[in-house]
């Protein structure tokens, strides 16, 4: 029995978990290469990147802290409107807009987290749904500010930092979105592998034990809810900056449901689930949705039912699971 070795192994395993996997390098290099190699697909790729970021923000909640949200679009839409209004009234510089949107959505998340975290998970579902509906109604009613059902147009998009123009330049705009996503993924990765991130996992795994080893559960959940809301707001702002109009669809239930579905398709708790899910979702939408919208709705519903039925081992996605299992580093026993 050589316990010395297993101890050493487990310490290395712990370090390895937070290190970057080679697949991650490949993925980001491929993403960077796609800026130059796939010019015809930039519109789709931009969409995928933004949805990935949005799904990542939900993953922080669901995959790491165990909070189910049916209304995550509230923060996405809020960020988008804030970014658009900020650009119209102050400056069209995109990075400033992202920061402002992120802070605003984060503050909204902070305020609403106090409502969300009070109840059991059933009331949480209802409250998250209710918050998104209230935000939708507000956006709809304050049409003098938001354009209501017509949407908000005329948002200026200046060159990034005054030097890098992205307005009506798909390649540049995709590159800009990709860089923002990369930075935020990097930050998210640091967070989930930090002591704070582990305490979230502990709360998700066993809230009773977490509080009896001294973790202030509610404070940590408020913190992650705020971070997730801020991420969602930045994703919304990105979409606002890369599309001509900010409309009520930014904030409706469909969006909350779609992002949840994308994340579930790709899998929760390893950060890249949203990337996989949104890519599959949007590519499939492009093909199936082109036939008729009813077909698309039907197959999305079908996918949800099947995933829910087999979600335990991720059923039809076990193939992905196997590839990504390496990424997650929960390799088979040594």
């Amino acid at each position: 029995m050589n316990t010395g070795n297993t101890v050493q192994d487990s310490v290395t395993a712990l370090k390895k978990k937070r290190a970057w996997h080679w697949l991650e390098y490949v993925f980001w290099l491929a993403a960077a290469a796609s800026v130059f190699l796939l010019p015809s697909q930039h519109a789709l790729l931009t969409q995928i990147a933004i949805w990935s970021l949005f799904a990542l923000s939900l993953d922080l909640l669901l995959g790491y802290a165990g909070i189910v949200s049916l209304g995550h679009a509230a923060y996405f839409g809020f960020g988008a409107y804030v970014a658009a209004l900020f650009a119209i009234n102050f400056t069209g510089e995109p990075i400033t807009g992202l920061i402002v949107a992120g802070i605003a959505a984060g503050l909204l998340g902070l305020a609403t987290s106090l409502l969300v975290l009070r109840g059991t998970d059933l009331t949480r579902l209802m409250v998250t749904l209710g918050i998104a509906l209230v935000m939708y109604e507000i956006a709809n009613q304050m049409s003098w500010l938001t354009g209501g059902a017509d949407g908000l147009t005329g948002m200026p998009v200046n060159p990034v930092l005054g030097i890098f123009p992205i307005y009506f330049r798909p390649a540049n705009s995709y590159a800009y979105v990709l860089i923002v996503c990369f930075v935020l993924f990097f930050v998210a990765k640091r967070i989930v592998h930090s002591p704070f991130g582990y305490s979230l996992r502990a709360i998700k795994g066993n809230p009773l034990r977490a509080s009896s080893i001294g973790i202030p559960n509610n404070l940590r959940l408020i913190a992650v809810y705020t971070i997730a809301a801020s991420y969602a707001g930045i994703a919304g702002a990105l979409l606002a900056q890369t599309t001509p109009v900010v409309s009520l669809t930014y904030i409706d239930f469909q969006r909350s449901a779609d992002v949840l579905l994308m994340l579930i398709i790709g899998g929760t708790g390893y950060l890249y689930g949203g990337v996989v899910g949104s890519a599959l979702f949007l590519v499939a939408q492009k093909f199936i949705g082109n036939i008729t919208p009813q077909y698309w709705e039907f197959w999305i519903g079908f996918a949800l039912v099947v995933i829910a039925l087999f979600a335990r081992d991720r059923g039809v996605f076990s193939i992905f699971e196997r590839i990504l299992g390496a990424l997650r580093n929960d390799k088979a026993k040594p």
Binding site: L70, A257, Y295, F298, I300, G301, L304, V305, I307, A311
Partner: peptide, 24 residues
């Protein structure tokens, strides 16, 4: 006996399917 998340996904899926069929 599943989690609420799985129940939510499943029943939303049913809603989408029913709506699509009726629409069709």
């Amino acid at each position: 006996n599943r989690s609420h998340l799985e129940q939510v996904l499943f029943t939303i899926g049913l809603v989408f399917m029913t709506s699509a069929v009726v629409d069709y």
